[in-house]
């Protein structure tokens, strides 16, 4: 019934950008959601720790010169029997500090996750904008490809792309190209969701009168898509991107666990888990445990943050 809901609160236009966000509906929702606050703090701490790994890590786990085989398989917290050196998360079979390895591994995981999300978002949003705004054959082709791709699990698509692309690269350079290939493979396996969502919102927006107003003065379709429609369809995109960041990190971990991802010389969390599971039955649990728990906490925190964001941007769904 009209008038049955209170009007939105007026906002002061003065004050800094940060202040405005804090006072906005999103800011209010954030301040009143303990889950969002905790998961934001956890995510930020983990991201900072990973990015600043060289500052925090006791050793550079990829430099074989600093590794001491004598320190191998030291349990966490107890001093090594030969060197009396102590490792918080223990050490692996080559004497690598697991804490440092987890920090650097998180860095690699986050890098692959963020880059692939960025890639799939840009790619998917562009295709979705085109499909929604231009319509007709363009739309049919883009959306049918998206439909086909969405009917397979993303991990299968990523495996396929990764496998094909790796085959095209000369064997000597395969190791160096793995990171880029992984980003491309995971990115390409996730674009369809963005394209679908953006196409839907674009079809709603393009019939709004502000778009017609731009057409009346002869604005080109490209300018209308980028300057008018894009800012108005970014809300759902940020939600998908946040949730997809968690999914992409898990996807990368899965690939690495299967042995088609990051090599052990430049391990991600997934690679560390793969290496660690070989020691599980001989009692060296910490080599598996710490990378795994890190992956779980990271993915969970980002996912919860995404869930909150979706609710906050879409109050009707609550």
């Amino acid at each position: 019934m009209a008038g049955a809901s209170p009007p939105p609160a007026t906002q002061n236009s003065d004050g800094s950008w940060l202040r405005r966000v804090w006072d906005s509906d999103i800011g209010w929702s954030f301040r009143h959601s303990p889950v969002a606050i905790v998961s934001a703090i956890v995510s930020i701490v983990m991201i900072l720790a990973a990015v600043l790994a060289p500052l925090f890590a006791p050793q550079d786990p990829f430099n074989p010169a600093v590794l001491n085989l004598m320190e191998g398989l030291t349990p966490p917290g107890t001093p090594n029997e030969f060197t009396q050196k102590s490792f918080v998360f223990g050490s692996d079979s080559q004497g690598r500090d697991m804490f440092s390895a987890v920090l650097y591994g998180t860095q690699v995981s986050l890098l692959v996750g963020a880059a692939s999300v960025l890639f799939s978002a840009v790619f998917g949003v562009l295709l979705g904008l085109m499909a929604g705004y231009i319509g007709g054959k363009t739309e049919s082709i883009i959306m049918r490809i998206a439909d086909i791709q969405l009917s397979f699990p993303a991990i299968l698509i990523a495996l396929l792309i990764f496998g094909v692309a790796r085959g095209l690269i000369p064997p000597g350079q395969q190791e160096d190209a793995t990171l880029i290939l992984l980003i491309l493979a995971i990115g390409l396996s996730n674009w369809a969701q963005y394209a679908r969502t953006v196409r839907g919102s674009t079809m709603v927006e393009k019939n709004k009168e502000y778009v017609q107003a731009a057409r009346v003065i002869g604005r080109s379709p490209f300018l209308i898509m980028v300057k008018h429609i894009l800012p108005n369809v970014m809300g759902p995109v940020t939600v998908i991107a946040t949730i997809n960041l968690a999914l992409a990190i898990i996807e990368e971990a899965t690939l690495s666990f299967l042995g088609v991802g990051m090599p052990p010389t430049q391990p991600s969390l997934g690679t560390l888990i793969r290496v660690g599971q070989q020691f599980l039955f001989s009692g060296e649990w910490w080599i598996l445990f710490f990378p795994a728990i890190t992956l779980v906490i990271l993915a969970l925190a980002i996912n919860l943050l995404g869930d909150w964001l979706r609710d906050a941007l879409n109050p009707r769904l609550r």
Binding site: Y210, Q212, N232
Partner: peptide
């Protein structure tokens, strides 16, 4: 030629 639209809530970006 210019146009003024019906819904002022939809006609401004």
């Amino acid at each position: 030629i210019q146009m003024i639209f019906q819904d002022p809530y939809a006609s401004l970006n």
